[in-house]
Design a protein around this nucleic acid. Structure first.
Lengths: 184, 184
DNA sequence: GTTCCCATGTAACCCGTTACATGATTTT
DNA sequence: AAAATCATGTAACGGGTTACATGGGAAC
């Protein structure tokens, strides 16, 4: 019975399970272009979690010496680790998470800005959303071609981000239309 | 020139500015039904920030003794505080924030679940989204009636949440349709 | 008479971050 | 000659959390 562990521990466990025999460095790269969008972790934290997972016996670390690149540790889930992962996935505590939007925080106080400031704030937000949308679209398209369950799950999570970004872009249109009506 | 301050400091500053002459207790209640949706803070943190804002001279604290309820401290932004707030609002660093979804994290590893688990995970998420949607709708409706700039900004931020929840609900429909085609 | 509301606070913890260090190899 | 890639780590910090304490008045 493991003590309270942060969700990030399971995130890394799942990652090792998904991409076995990878180094921390490689896992960081994968994390950075996959679940960083809904569960970002720093490089330092990733290495700490790998250490913890090894101590718990949920993953094994193997030293892999190479000729021209530095030696590296590669990881792999144990049977115990896979069981823990399955239990966590089956668990009912899926509601966890957090959301903090610097944009909304400022926008909430928009009545203390002049019209020009509000517009530039909105435009900055729009640009960020467009980048997000394009990125999610690219990921979804790329994974569309790969017909595996792993890619399927990834594609649908990307689609979640895509739909969210689209809806928020539509919201900025809505807001701009309202602001346009009301001259400063 | 203030040192690095977390965004939460400005969140509380804006809150005091928005609801002057309120106690920490009252501010916590307001925060809990307004910006907790996009910038939640704990009660402890709120009190700490009020203390910090007072020390910085951005708000003033006044003791207000009462007859049948306990005495309380009430807060009010100073001229300096209002200037700082305006500067922060005008600043370009609106991109800050964070997003972590326990649901997406699990869904990303859905290929390690059986079909029934995936369905119940989705249903749990759906229910949470419906609650969110209803809450945002109620807030937007309530603020619609109030014709002030403050209420207007609040209404639009609620609309942002509403549109997001709607889009994500539509996404769950999309996913369920796909899963329905593929029998377990 | 227990439970809820008001009102403020303390203590302890740790997750997660940024910044920095190292060093060999490969590319520009 | 400089910069990027591979690869792992240390040090220090702090923001934010949960849990707990207190205590009087009001409400059920």
């Amino acid at each position: 019975m493991p003590p309270h562990l942060p969700e990030s521990t399971y995130a890394v466990l799942g990652l090792v399970d998904k991409v076995p025999d990878s180094s921390g460095y490689e896992l960081a790269a994968v994390a950075d272009r996959s679940f960083t969008h809904f569960w970002s972790i720093s490089q330092t934290l990733l290495y700490r979690e790998l250490e913890r997972l090894t101590e718990l016996g949920w993953v094994t670390a193997t030293r892999d010496e190479q000729v021209r690149t530095p030696g590296k540790w590669t990881y792999r889930t144990t049977a115990a680790g896979q069981q823990v992962l399955a239990d966590w996935l089956a668990g009912p505590d899926a509601a966890k998470g957090s959301f903090r939007s610097g944009f909304l925080l400022k926008f909430f106080f928009a009545y203390r800005m002049d019209a020009g400031q509000v517009r530039s704030l909105l435009q900055e937000y729009r640009r960020a959303l467009q980048l997000q949308r394009d990125e999610f679209e690219a990921i979804a398209d790329k994974l569309e071609a790969i017909r595996t369950p792993e890619a399927g799950a990834g594609k649908l999570t990307a689609l979640h981000g895509l739909r969210t970004a689209e809806a928020r872009l539509a919201w900025t249109d809505e807001v701009e239309a309202l602001l346009g009506k009301d001259p400063p």
